[in-house]
């Protein structure tokens, strides 16, 4: 029995049909194994944007790459299907000049996990908030914003969550250098 309902994969493919696939990430797509169900889709050289993955191998059942402007639509679809928000985070890819945003959703009854990814340019890190769809996204986005300097447009309360309010810099960026402590300087 498949852990990932087929209709979910189809609906994702319907929702995001003609995605420009030249941009996807060089590295992290190679991990998941292809599922037989994807055989019907014309096989492009990069992995299809929506694919089933094996839970036992990577820890999620569906991996979907969407365009940044489609993220709200994807969240609405998953909300409608009864998914809960699991986490939101970012990954810094300085070589590709991009931030990868990773949105994880889980289903309480089925145990299914869906991972939605998108990439935004590093020099203009902006994406729409999901806080109006999932109120739980509020804190996750505040955390991602303060650690990566990503702006979530429309966020109801865009202030620091874990860092001190006067903290300068974005610590989880790969090029972050901590400010020297004035008290420790000779």
């Amino acid at each position: 029995m498949s852990r990932c309902p087929d209709n979910l994969l189809e609906r994702f493919q319907e929702l995001f049909p003609a995605m420009n696939m030249e941009k996807p990430a060089p590295s992290e797509e190679s991990a998941g194994e292809e599922d037989g169900a994807d055989a019907a889709v014309p096989p492009p050289p990069p992995p299809p944007p929506c694919r089933k993955t094996e839970h036992a191998k990577v820890g999620y059942d569906l991996d979907a790459i969407v365009e940044p402007h489609q993220i709200e639509e994807a969240a609405k679809l998953l909300d409608h299907e009864g998914f809960a928000i699991d986490m939101i985070t970012a990954v810094d890819w300085p070589d590709a000049e991009q931030f990868e945003l990773v949105y994880d959703f889980m289903h309480f009854q089925a145990g299914t996990r869906v991972c939605v990814r998108t990439r935004i340019p590093r020099d203009r890190p902006e994406i729409a908030t999901l806080a109006h769809i999932y109120p739980g996204a509020n804190w996750h986005e505040r955390e991602t914003a303060e650690f990566y300097g990503i702006q979530f447009t429309g966020h109801p309360n865009p202030i620091h969550l874990l860092l001190p309010e006067d903290f300068v810099g974005y610590p989880l960026r790969k090029d972050f250098k901590p400010q020297p402590d004035p008290l420790l300087e000779p």
Partner: peptide, 9 residues
């Protein structure tokens, strides 16, 4: 670990 993105809960 080989390249990729893995979760474990």
């Amino acid at each position: 670990p080989p390249e990729g993105d893995y979760c474990y809960a």
